[in-house]
Design a protein around this nucleic acid. Structure first.
Lengths: 217, 217
DNA sequence: ACCTGAACACCGTTCAAGT
DNA sequence: ACCTGAACACCGTTCAAGT
């Protein structure tokens, strides 16, 4: 994954402090988020963990927010890889969508704070996201787009993928549903005792039904 | 709405500082969020705005987080009222769902920071939400549940509302989709030039299709 | 180019005290 | 019961200086 350990760097012959402090800071911050399930820790604490002075981070990030944005981008990359792996060797678009959704939700459940950072975040400044995090999010979206195109090709989904607007809208609707469910599960807002996989299955079933028949809107 | 002004308090004959500082603090914080589109302001700043010493808030909230949670609950209440009003005098469940979704998304777009606070939030401590915010969220969910029940009664939606699990799952799926879309619109992650109303319409159309026919899952 | 240490203006929270 | 003021340990960020 993206978490290159300190040892690897050192065995590289590169000095931890001079070779890749940026990466080390991101790793340290991500580890802190994973451990504490919170990101109210200080930038100084991250620097301490990385074994550098409390200002060293400013050589790599303009301010704290930008470092968190880099962690978020890292989280998006992990999510992308996990969903991508989940749809390997699936037999149908329908199955791929289900597998993707399960992997997606589980990724969030396993590290709620990181998932919250990726989306909920005060990363936005003036309601504008840092480019790095934004781009990483778009790459994650591409996985869903691939599934939709596959379903259209196979005839499973009644989507006109040559109509860019329609394709984008469908992809966005699907991502919205899966993302929303992930948030509610994480936040304990489901208000039911049903298992997470059951909820995911029901959501996917409903979305697939919506994609199959295309009556008057 | 819930924003009772200072004047109203004073005309009540109640002293602003002794009568309802809690409410005044929530209002001040909400105003700060609305103005700055951020909630990294300090608790001391909120106290300043309310014209009290920097510790007065501690008489009403155990810590800063709890005050933000109260603001979030306030935001949920506004959202609930706006969606509730949107579905008044609608002719069908289908129309109600559309109107509700439009009002919901627009509410988020009008005050992104508040919406982010309500959901994305580091309000959670140990992944557990403050009771007040949690309860307010559940009340918002009830609006969607009402629409689904109405659609089941009228035969518009093929949902067995006597099956609690199924009903909960459907409501959660719908809420997930609308919430997810709201977040993506706010975060500028839609990756399309289509208008927000168009995206909402497409999402609603897809969800309704999913609710109408019930073939083998 | 990258890192350090001192410095500045702030903050969340606690505590003893006032009414 | 509610509010104040002083105090504590911290933080983000800047700056001058070191290599």
């Amino acid at each position: 994954m993206l978490n290159i350990s300190a040892e690897q760097h050192l065995s590289d012959g590169r000095n931890y402090h001079h070779g890749d402090l940026r990466r080390a800071l991101i790793s340290a911050a991500r580890a802190l988020i994973t451990e504490t399930q919170d990101w109210t820790f200080s930038l100084r604490e991250v620097a301490r963990r990385a074994g550098v002075s409390h200002n060293a981070p400013y050589n790599h990030f303009p301010e704290k927010r930008d470092m968190l944005a880099a962690v978020a981008a890292d989280g998006f990359e992990t999510l992308r890889q996990r969903t991508l792996q989940a749809i390997q060797s699936t037999q149908s678009a329908r199955e791929a969508l289900a597998k993707c959704a399960h992997a997606y939700v589980q990724n969030g459940v396993e590290n709620p704070a990181l998932y919250r950072l990726m989306f909920g975040s005060e990363l936005a400044r003036d309601n504008q996201w840092p480019d790095e995090a934004h781009a990483a999010g778009q790459r994650t979206k591409a996985v869903i787009e691939e599934i939709v195109c596959r379903g259209a090709d196979s005839g499973e989904f009644a989507v006109d993928i040559d109509d860019t607007d329609e394709l984008t809208g469908v992809v966005l609707s699907l991502w919205s549903a899966v993302h929303g469910l992930t948030m509610f599960v994480i936040d304990g807002m489901t208000g039911t005792s049903r298992s997470v996989p059951e909820l995911v299955d029901q959501l996917v079933a409903m979305q697939c039904r919506g994609l199959r028949s295309r009556m008057a809107q």
